[in-house]
Design a protein around this nucleic acid. Structure first.
Length: 423
RNA sequence: GGAGAAAUGGCAGAGUGGUCGAAUGCACCGGUCUUGAAAACCGGCGAGGGUCACACCUCCGGGGGUUCGAAUCCCUCUUUCUCCGCCA
């Protein structure tokens, strides 16, 4: 959620930057500013009437004590009038506040100046490429066929137990999965991220805190009996650790990592592009998250990108990094870098990580602040990224490491798997 | 799941209808003293809104109510603790 004060002070700039998302924001911004003004006027009026009412109540107390009952009763009548006015003003104030908030929920984050204009993923900017695309034998198979051939992932069994999009990993497949999780977590903790194990269900307030609610409600599985939501990403529980928090400046930066399964309804997405591991309802992901001082956050973003690069270099997977264009940029993000690994057998790029700086957008809604040098509370910047999403990394490994007689295991993973081939 | 108790500032802990945003202690920050530190003493020390700055308003787990006036009374929800039951 953007800050109204910012919109007021940087109106034209905000509108111009939002245009990169192909949004004509002028009307919304104008409305927000005028609703805020109305809010302040009403608030001031209400405050002064309340001040008067408070004073009267105190006077009544004094009059009762000194025995001036008649005078006290006369004041009571006056107080009743004020109460009526207070009620009306409060209603008006609440409506205005609600309108303002609803409007602010609809305005996405202001893109960073580096964000290229553009409509679709085709307009994303490739900023880095690494690794040669391996020459595979002519009969190279996509990962879902390899998974079947070597009996390491059973999609049909998942259908039986739950439904489509809930694969069953078994044998060396399960072990490889566990090895990847441990390897990622180890890399992250080595880089100074503190490991967390987080709840996989969150309450409504947490959903609002990170912006999944109210708009993207349909993305999450909802347990209505207890009004809880299955997490679509560890970002939700991890970021909500800091809801309603005031940190000391010296606490910054905070670096967290955690592994969780992720649950996404993905309603309406079916077809060739979602085969195999490409898109699932349940998948595993290791997340990194940072809480940063505002003037450090872009340095931190760079650092996170380098960190993810380091992991992919070690895994020796061909990948590229994209700077997302305005049209593809997530609602809450100011600047996002996507990592894609090349799926050789499918001949397409698969997104395996997304690293974003949200600046104060999340922090504002979360009320996550730090006390600055002037002892004033200031909003923190939040950043997060995947390091990494498991299924597509797994798909990348299976496809790119396939040989005539099986699948090789990337060298860095062998200490974790305990085997060097799947065959 | 059943019965009972509780929820107050960073922590501990007073406060049961009026001048209480809230005693006191600890922690923390600044100062005096000291070669330095500790101790002692003095001062400061929650958040949000609002203002150029004050004033002022709101907040004692959340929501609602009674009252001229609520941390204090009533209703409700949530959470925690104790006991019982169940259980990995």
């Amino acid at each position: 959620m953007l800050q109204v004060a910012y919109l007021r002070d940087h109106k034209e700039e905000a509108i111009a930057q939002l245009a990169k998302r192909n949004i004509e924001a002028r009307e919304m911004v104008d409305n927000a500013i005028s609703l805020d003004e109305e809010r302040r006027i009403t608030q001031t009026e209400l405050d002064s009437i309340k001040a008067e009412a408070n004073k009267i109540s105190k006077d009544i107390g004094g009059l009762f004590k000194s025995g001036a009952i008649d005078k006290a009763n006369a004041l009571k009548a006056k107080s009743a009038d004020l109460k009526e006015t207070i009620k009306q003003l409060e209603n008006r104030l609440n409506t205005t506040k609600q309108d303002l908030e609803n409007l602010l929920y609809k305005i996405p984050n202001i893109p960073h100046e580096l964000v290229p204009a553009g409509n679709t993923e085709d307009d994303n900017e490739v900023v880095f490429e690494h690794g040669d695309i391996p020459k595979l034998p002519g009969d190279a198979l996509p990962h879902w066929e390899l998974a079947k051939k070597y009996d390491i992932i059973d999609f049909e069994l998942g259908n039986k137990i739950t439904g489509s999009g809930f694969p069953v990993y078994k044998g060396k497949g399960a072990k490889l999965q566990r090895a990847l999780i441990t390897y990622f977590l180890d890399k992250n903790t080595e880089a100074g991220y503190t490991e967390y194990q987080l709840p996989h269900l969150v309450n409504e307030a947490s959903g609002f805190g990170t912006g999944q609610l109210p708009d993207k409600e349909g993305q999450m599985y909802h347990v209505s009996e207890d009004n809880l939501y299955l997490i679509p990403t560890a970002e939700v529980p991890a970021t909500n650790i800091f809801r309603d928090t005031i940190l000391n400046e010296t606490d910054l930066p905070l670096k967290l990592t955690g592994y969780t399964p992720c649950f996404r309804r993905e309603a309406g997405s079916y077809g060739a592009h979602v085969r195999g591991l490409n898109r699932l309802h349940q998948f595993d992901k290791v997340e990194i998250l940072r809480i940063e001082h505002p003037n450090q956050s872009y340095e931190a973003l760079k650092d996170m990108v380098e960190h993810v690069k380091g992991i992919l270099n070690e895994l020796k997977l061909p990948y590229r990094i994209l700077r997302l264009c305005g049209g593809d940029l997530g609602f809450t993000s100011a600047l996002t870098y996507d990592f894609e690994v090349f799926s050789t057998a499918q001949n397409r790029w698969l997104e395996i990580s997304s690293v974003s700086n949200f600046e104060t957008f999340q922090a504002n809604r979360l009320k996550l602040r730090f006390k600055n040098k002037d002892a004033k509370n200031e909003l923190c910047h939040t950043l997060n990224g995947s390091s990494l999403a498991l299924p597509r990394v797994l798909a990348g490994i299976l496809e790119n490491y396939q040989t005539e007689d099986g699948i090789a295991i990337p060298e860095v993973l062998i200490p974790y798997t305990g085997f060097s081939h799947i065959n």
